[in-house]
Design a protein around this nucleic acid. Structure first.
Lengths: 199, 199
DNA sequence: CTCGGTTGTCTAGCGGTGCTAGGATTTCTT
DNA sequence: AAGAAATCCTAGCACCGCTAGACAACCGAG
């Protein structure tokens, strides 16, 4: 019965290969260059094998997005752990978020810009996405202030980060003062008592 | 020599027809439904006619985006004029921005989501876009606070609005508490500016 | 070790896309 | 009224996502 096990393993390997190749190609030349033909050629199989793993291109994008969401959640958790006071945590989170978006533009697009068929803000939201949001929520609740819904507070902060990420990468904002913008955002967002400003 | 004048007029009319049709079709069924064939059929001409007006689909999207930018700039200016104190102006601007995005999703996409070949934050940025930004800048400078670059301050605020607009429309944020989010954003953005201000 | 059957893969093709060359037709000029 | 010029359309290219059906490789049974 181990022959079946081997086949399953090979299948899983190939699926990983497809996703890794799609991601690599997207990061190198953009998602519009990720066509089923090119993708098939790179993995050295014919097009139809792609459809034996995924329902279609959408689902491939969705799978890459899911990978990315998991990585981003990890990065955010790690960032939050580096600082020991609330403001520093928020700053670290913001930086980590924008870094991830800048370093993995195609994956970020798959997550938030393209239609990967992922559900959001609903019952069937994928776990990695919920985790990423939870990482933000944990540190932002601390600085929300009284009478402010932490959930909404986090959502708006996230929206600001998302806006900065997309507008910067689309060339809508000059990438020149990206750090000062992040700082400005965090300053406004954590404006409660502590006036501890890092240079 | 008035025959030439008439021809030019007819040509301009047809160009407007193309843009209006493209916009209408995009708002009705999304930009992916705006194909050159369908567009040509709707204006009752053949495809190549489109290419005698625009270099390609990109340029059509760009032209719609430009129209939209002008409308948005007008809407923002009007909104800023409705309130007589700084905080109200910022709130009105935010509301007007998000309203525009919600009511003209396809146009908003053309402006910021799709590639319409428009330049941004550069020397050759189209005038309407600069005007829109200027409308924001005028009211936000008032609440930026000391030692805060008004330009950067406005950019980050804009990014937050953009994030809210896109995430809400993509279903990433439940459209339920949209107004509370806007309120929350404006609160955070204006508040400390007022108190710390000492001119 | 051979042989049927299953499983896996590929070739070929469908309808769609953006875009364009070249011929046909209309329109203006003389 | 006829030649010239502008205008427009038919037809087709290369590519897209996706799929049916032929073909080859592999497996387990005898």
């Amino acid at each position: 019965m181990s022959v079946q096990g081997r086949k399953e393993r090979e299948r899983a390997d190939r699926e990983r290969l497809i996703l890794a190749t799609a991601r690599e190609l997207a990061e190198q030349q953009g998602w519009e260059a990720v066509t089923t033909r090119r993708l098939a050629e790179r993995i050295e199989y014919s097009q139809p094998v792609l459809y034996s793993h995924f329902r279609g291109k959408r689902e491939i994008i969705g799978a890459v997005a899911l990978q990315g969401a998991a990585e981003m959640a990890t990065a955010l958790r790690a960032a939050a752990a580096t600082a020991d006071e609330p403001r520093g945590r928020v700053a670290a989170l913001a930086q980590a978020y924008l870094d991830f978006a800048a370093r993995n533009p195609a994956v970020y697009d798959a997550m938030f810009q393209l239609d990967g068929g992922l559900a959001f803000a609903q019952a069937d939201t994928p776990e990695p996405l919920k985790e990423g949001f939870a990482a933000l929520l944990g540190s932002l609740s601390e600085v929300a202030g009284d009478g402010v819904d932490p959930g909404l507070f986090t959502e708006v902060f996230w929206a600001a980060l998302h806006g900065l990420a997309t507008l910067t990468r689309a060339g809508r904002l000059p990438s020149e003062h990206a750090e000062r913008r992040t700082e400005l955002l965090v300053d406004r967002w954590v404006q409660s008592g502590q006036e501890a400003k890092r240079s």
